[in-house]
Amino acid sequence: MNNRRGAAANPLDALRRDRGPGPCRAFFHSLKSSKRAYAVGLLNDPKLSFATFFLLLPEMDGAVPEEELSERNRTAVRLCGILLDAPNTGGGAVHPEYGETVRDTLRWMFSAGAEADGMDADLDRIVDLSACILLQIYRDAEILPEVVRLLFLRNRKGALLHDLAWAFFRAADPRALRVAAEYLLSPAAEDAELARLLLHLPKAGNTTREKRAQYASYLRWLEENRPYLARTGESFNASCKPNACSVNLGAKYLHRKISPAGPAKPQPLTELEKNCLSCFAGASREEKELLARYSSKLREADPVRWNDWIRRPLNKQILSARSGEAER
C-alpha cells in the first residue's frame, strides 16, 4: 500500500484525503494554468496515489500531453481507457501488451486505487479488473491478502464484490483461503458470514468459542489438504454457495501434490500409481475419503509402512485403514 500520510506525501494526495475529490480537482485545475510544470511534476511523482491520478484524468485530458507523463502514468492512462471501455465492446476487447511495465502499473492501480474504495464507481471497477488481470495473467498471488481485505471491506459497506470474488475463486489459493479464514473470528457477524460463504463452510454459532472451533477446524482441514486442493471454477456467477476448491482424493491417496493454479505439468504416473488409481476409482465416496485420509497420514508418519500398504489389494487397504482410523 502507498504511503498515506506523512510529510513526504504528495500535496494532491493530501488534499484529496483531507478535503475530498472536489477541492483536489479544483486545485489541480488552477495549478495547471498557473504553474503547469509544477502540476505535471506532481502527477509524475512516484509517490502519487493512483486514486488521485484517476480523479484528475479528466483534468489532464487535452491539457497534459501524453509525452510529458512518466511511463507508469502513460501506461495507466492507456489501461484505464481499455478497462472502462471493455463492457461496451461486446467481446473482442482491446488488450495491452502484458509485460513488466503493465504488471507494475496494474499493481499500483490496484493497491493505491483500493485505498480510495467507494470514491468512484469507475475507479472501483478498474481496481477490480486490475486484480483480475494480475491474478489470471501474471499469477500474482502477492496481491491476494489485499484482495481478501477489500472483499470484506466492500461487504461491510454493502458494495459490489462480484468481480473481486471471482478473482478470489479463480485463484483458489491456500494463502487467500487462510486470510479469509481469519475473518471467521471477527466480532462482526457479516465478516464471519462472508468468510463462511467464501470458504464453503456451514453456518455456525456466533459465540467466540464456536467461532474459534470453526476456525481451528478449518485450518486443520486446510493444512491436511493443502497439497491436494484443486480449483473447481465455481463463483458467485454460477452459484449462491460456490466452492473455490475441492480435495483431489486420488492425488491425496497417491500422495501426489498438485497446484490449484496448475501451470506446471505433473509428472506422469508410474505403473504402480496407475494400478492403484484404477482400483481406487471403483471405491465408494466414503471409502475414497477414508483411503485418502489414511494414506496421507501414514505416508507422513511412516513412509516405509506406507510403501507396503499402497501395494496391497484395495480391500486389504480399506480394512487396515478402518482399523487404523479406529485406533486413533
Partner: peptide, 19 residues
C-alpha cells in the same frame, strides 16, 4: 444450467460464464 468459461479474459469477467 450454466456454461462455464474458466479461462475467461480477465478484462471482461462478465464472460466468465452464462446462466
Amino acid at each position: 444450467r450454466y456454461f462455464a468459461n474458466p479461462d475467461v479474459d480477465p478484462i471482461t469477467p462478465q464472460w466468465q460464464g452464462e446462466n
